[in-house]
Design a protein around this nucleic acid. Sequence first.
DNA 1: AAAACTCCGCTGACCACATTATCAG
DNA 2: TTCTGATAATGTGGTCAGCGGAGTT
Length: 330
Amino acid sequence: MSTNAYAFDSSFPRHSTTSDMASSDTPGGGDLFFSDPFPFLFFNPTDVAAVHQIPNETASSCSLDPFSSSFFSFSPPSTHLENLSLYQQHLETEFGNFSGLDDGFKVVKSEELQTGGDYSNGNQNFVPQNNASENVHKSIQRSYSSSCFDGKPGFLLQPHHDTLIDSSNFHGQAMNSPENSQVRRVCSTGDLQNMESSTQTNQREGSFLEEANFKVGRYSAEERKEKISKYRAKRSQRNFNKTIKYACRKTLADNRPRIRGRFARNDETGENSKGSCSTRNEEEDEFWFEGMHEEQEQMMTWRMMSGGGEYMNSYGSDPLHQHQFQYRSF
DNA sequence: AAAACTCCGCTGACCACATTATCAG
DNA sequence: TTCTGATAATGTGGTCAGCGGAGTT
């Protein structure tokens, strides 16, 4: 089975700080999906083509991939730009080089990940299996798994339909809630009917966008194009020349356990992982999925299959973390 | 027109600790 | 001058609080 999903390889050097990536580089400056003024901008063929300067057909065939969409849309905030980069690399890998980002992220094709579920035809029968999970989570940059996921084993394994915004539902709802002004998880709940037709919806989206008044989120095609070009201009000015004086320090920092983005004591890590799961070291990562109780797996599976919009909320008793995973229903 | 409010983009502080730099003996 | 040990300073990245400008009411 070929999923074309991508994961991160933490061993591959990055060249930008988080603020570089998350704030300055995403279109609009914020988190692509959390406070992005044009959510899901890059997940329709037209926009992919616009951003990457490739033919629509090419972008179209890329953006239809269900699993990659799922993966990207559920990435934690600071990874969105990385996702964007990865997406570009995805395109490059599949269709050869074209001008675009030079972030230099190593891409791990998850064809190699051997995901065990059946989600052909875009159905929602995908059931996470351990071998797939292992490979996937090993590929995730560690910090993501620590402070962002908080032991959310289903993170990578959510149904792909979540990436797709049903504009009629989404419009005017997602972005204007005050309680979500800082962090917005802009996801469709993906009720079953919508899930069924998500792929087709995605296919149609490209052509719809050509219509002048079609809107995705708050922006018309016209506005989106404008913002994309603005973003591209800004992106071209990005500074990737941040020099790492000491590679060893970088390696250490990369591998250092974190709690909410801050470096944490090594001994703290073990304690916290038992409680809040806010950090996770290498060994713990190994058991991230494996250690999940069968019960939890079943519940997760059920929630995914039912397109449940609430399962993200079941994680993280820590209120400080909860808002990061607020899952919006439309 | 002014005030109050909300939203958005962005910046920088914070953290632990291995490595590096500096200094005294 | 060179070596050794002790101490101080540095640098690394993800997250989030909060600021200020822009837009809205």
